[in-house]
């Protein structure tokens, strides 16, 4: 188990060794995002931009025009809310080769509360043409995605949770944009999830076995692009589809799945996530209980749903 922010710092250090164009631009949060590891290893390629995220995004665009591969280091909320206009016009609209390391994504942000929790980022970034939107689940997938994003020519938003989560993948894991990953097959319920929440869903699915419910888990690390056919095919094999995300139930993964299925294979889709409310400052366990996304709460909710499901 390794926190995704440590993966961020370590992978960039490792990449910099072979790719001289990799730079890091920090909006004064490097010791939180762990970009400080890069600052220590490559001080001349670490550019402190101060607490000024909009300018930070613009500077990265200028650097990218000269062939550099700038990675941005700040909290997700500051990219998708404060600096969204330069992200929109300068990065996405010009297909600039800028990589957004969106740290502290989702609800579990280390006691920072609703001001720093971003549970709208997927909805916002997914609606943006030219943007690739990725959400790794664990350390192995996180490293693979950061490496893939660095090699890809174009803007990428990488949603990085703050803390460690259960390891899911093996060393030979290979990231393929758009591809979904079946973590477990089941004939009754399909749980579709993304980011580290997929690990919690896997745990819930395993425990549902004891209740006589066969639950599968489909992990979606690539929110955009996404392989629609795989989501349709997996959904057609079960009686009930449930999406779970550490994000608003509006417009994120749940919205994505509902959009795809309503067009291609209409069926009931239940969306679990943050309903129409803000988060709060609290330990991770408290938040997962409150928002009913811990493995035991998921188990209960899915049991209830399945009992009622026609």
């Amino acid at each position: 188990m390794k926190a995704l922010r440590d993966v961020f710092g370590d992978t960039l250090v490792s990449l910099a060794l072979t790719n001289p164009n990799v730079l890091v631009l920090d909006a004064d949060l490097a010791n939180s995002t762990k970009a400080d590891k890069f600052a220590k290893a490559y001080p001349e390629r670490f550019l402190q931009m101060g607490i000024a995220e909009q300018n930070c995004v613009g500077v990265a665009v200028g650097l990218a025009s000269l062939g550099f591969v700038p990675w941005l280091s700040s909290f997700t909320v500051f990219f998708t809310h404060r600096a969204i206009d330069p992200v929109r016009m300068l990065v996405a609209q010009t297909h600039a080769n800028v990589k957004i390391g969106a740290a502290y994504a989702g609800l579990l942000t280390g006691l920072t509360g609703k001001t720093h929790q971003d549970v709208q980022d997927l909805a916002i970034m997914r609606a943006m043409p030219d943007m690739t939107v990725l959400a790794p689940a664990d350390a192995i997938e996180g490293e693979a995605i950061i490496r893939w994003a660095t090699d890809y020519d174009g803007p990428v938003f990488v949603r990085l949770a703050r803390d460690a989560s259960r390891d899911i993948f093996e060393d030979q894991y290979r990231f393929v944009p758009g591809k979904t990953i079946s973590l477990r097959t089941g004939s009754d319920v399909l749980i579709i999830s993304t980011g580290p929440q997929s690990a919690r869903c896997l745990q819930a699915a395993e425990s549902l076995q004891n209740e006589g419910i066969s639950a599968g888990v489909l992990h979606v690390p690539s929110i955009k692009p996404v392989n629609k056919e795989e989501i349709v095919a997996a959904s057609e094999r079960v009686k009930l589809v449930v999406t779970v995300e550490e994000h608003s139930i509006y417009g994120g993964l749940g919205g994505l799945v509902a959009e795809i299925l309503s067009e291609a294979s209409p069926r009931r889709v239940i969306r679990f996530g943050i309903e129409d409310r803000w988060g709060e400052s609290a330990p991770n366990d408290y938040l997962l209980e409150t928002f009913q996304m811990s493995p035991p709460r998921l188990n209960e909710r899915i049991q209830k749903l399945f009992a009622k499901s026609p």
Binding site: V57, V59, L63
Partner: peptide
Amino acid sequence: GQGLSVGLGIALG
């Protein structure tokens, strides 16, 4: 309000 930042990035690069 955005062009100067890009120019800054180009000059820095």
